[in-house]
Design a protein around this nucleic acid. Structure first.
Lengths: 163, 163
DNA sequence: TATAGTAACTATGATAATCATAGTGACAAG
DNA sequence: CTTGTCACTATGATTATCATAGTTACTATA
């Protein structure tokens, strides 16, 4: 394909986000980072993306200030990737995607009982369902406030990929 | 590229959404539909996408049940595209993208004063900022509750594209 | 009647992004 | 001194995307 059109200078905020997020690989990598999988190989394994693509996208995310490369070991030198504040702020987008999918993207009963990922408010323990404000205590919910618990079926799928 | 990997059968809700939303063209077309631009040529002009891509993606959105093709005129036969309920539910995702971009994707002062798009709660008139719950009346905010008002600069950019 | 215009597409070819797979460099462990 | 781990890089086949031109089916104006 020809060079993809550049949206980074549009004044439209959705266009600007689309420049970053309108990419399957980026979305999947962000998912991994939000789930606490920071190592290159784990990210590649869990997303099913080739190492080339993972490499290119991680560099892009670092360049955009969304992720950060850190050494977690000298001798041997090993690096992993962490979300910056700018990256953590993307949680709301992924959470909205999850909310939409839980409601619209599964055939009846396909995900077993209940949602594929259950989110619980850390401070009060309430299952928040798909809310953006805690139904228990009324606090607004962002990254760090929520604890995601994959269903047994989803967990099985994930461990199968790493094996 | 080889055929892109299929995520439609993963149990992960983010993966499922990514299958649809991890695509620049889809995101831009959805933006147009949410802004009430339903005609093919308008969508192509405002997104800057070629007619081929717009055609393919609209067919995909219709096949996914996110959009619907309607005839708005017989003689000559003319069609346009509307969001279904499943499509309208994606508002939360695009709104989260907008919220993120307003905060993180502009250089200081780049968008002029205030946000690139101002959102106002229709029923109570409050400027909601980037909230998901109305700061004025406490109602939760979804598609239909909000009225988006582009800044003069953004409006200028949009009309420039259609001319 | 002829010409131009509008809207929703389809067709084509050049180019670049993606996938799959194999390979590299730096080190540790047995 | 061979095997293993981890974070990548290199390569070639395949295909999606862009830009542009063309098509179909009408309406409107001259």
């Amino acid at each position: 394909m020809p060079k993809r059109a550049d949206l980074s200078d549009t004044l439209c905020p959705v266009g600007r986000s689309a420049e970053l997020l309108g990419d399957r690989a980026v979305l999947l990598i962000l998912r991994e980072l939000f789930f606490g999988r920071r190592r290159f190989e784990l990210i590649a394994a869990n997303t099913g993306l080739g190492p080339q693509l993972v490499s290119v996208r991680l560099k892009m995310l670092v360049a955009e200030g969304v992720a950060e490369r850190r050494a977690y070991s000298e001798r041997p030198v090993r690096h992993d990737y962490w979300l910056t504040d700018k990256g953590k702020a993307l949680f709301d987008v992924l959470y909205a995607m999850r909310n939409w999918a839980e409601r619209w993207a599964y055939a009846p009963g396909e995900a077993g009982e209940g949602p594929a990922i259950r989110y619980v408010h850390r401070t009060c323990g309430t299952d928040v369902g798909t809310a953006t404000v805690c139904p228990g205590c009324g606090a607004s919910l962002g990254y760090g406030d929520l604890k995601g618990e994959p269903s047994p079926a989803l967990e099985a799928e994930q461990t199968a990929r790493t094996a």
